[in-house]
């Protein structure tokens, strides 16, 4: 079931990417919906699952973006593993900790991509601008915080609905 939810989330991220690219060609340089999917599911699973989630999402991104196939797969595998490790060591129940994990994941992904490009292409490799990197970190933090807020609100409403439903059944 979790695997199906992950696939649905990946497809949703792809739809967001497509709509964003149609609105503005600079959308992928600032917003990374796939990173949100990786961090979200990596926080909820163990390191093994997180690595596989990162690899699958990265290969998906490489197929869409072009360039070197395996570039994002490498970076997202590292990010998935790192997030899963951080989630094991940090109390992720606190919202601030989760938001920090989103920021760190975005920064780690950009760092790994830059290092890989430099080592593969050399000194003339195209590097993202500092503004683009900061923009991705900021948007990841904001979108991650929004997702966490929506999830906690949905959980609260679901549990109150369940309590009301079980309360009605008791008095029959």
């Amino acid at each position: 079931m979790t695997f199906v939810k992950f696939l649905v989330a990946l497809l949703g991220a792809y739809l967001v990417h497509l709509v964003g690219v149609t609105v503005s060609p600079r959308f992928p340089g600032v917003v990374d919906p796939f990173l949100l999917v990786i961090v979200w599911y990596s926080m909820r699973t163990g390191p093994v699952g997180a690595e596989l989630i990162g690899t699958a999402t990265g290969l998906f991104q490489d197929a869409i973006f072009g360039g070197f196939f395996g570039l994002h797969a490498f970076a997202d595998t590292v990010v998935g593993y790192g997030v899963a490790l951080a989630a094991q060591r940090v109390v992720v129940g606190q919202q601030a900790a989760r938001v920090l994990i989103f920021a760190a994941a975005a920064a780690l992904q950009q760092l790994v991509l830059v290092v890989l490009l430099r080592s593969m292409v050399g000194a003339g490799s195209p590097l993202p601008s500092l503004g683009s990197v900061l923009g991705k970190i900021v948007t990841s933090v904001l979108l991650g915080a929004a997702l966490i807020s929506m999830e906690s609100r949905a959980r609260t409403q679901w549990s109150s609905w369940q309590r009301r439903r079980s309360g009605r059944l008791r008095f029959r």
Partner: peptide, 20 residues
Amino acid sequence: ARWLLVLLLLGELLLLSRQA
């Protein structure tokens, strides 16, 4: 998890190096 990470990263590096 560490072994799987190493295997996955090595596979991806091999894939990247073949494309270069």
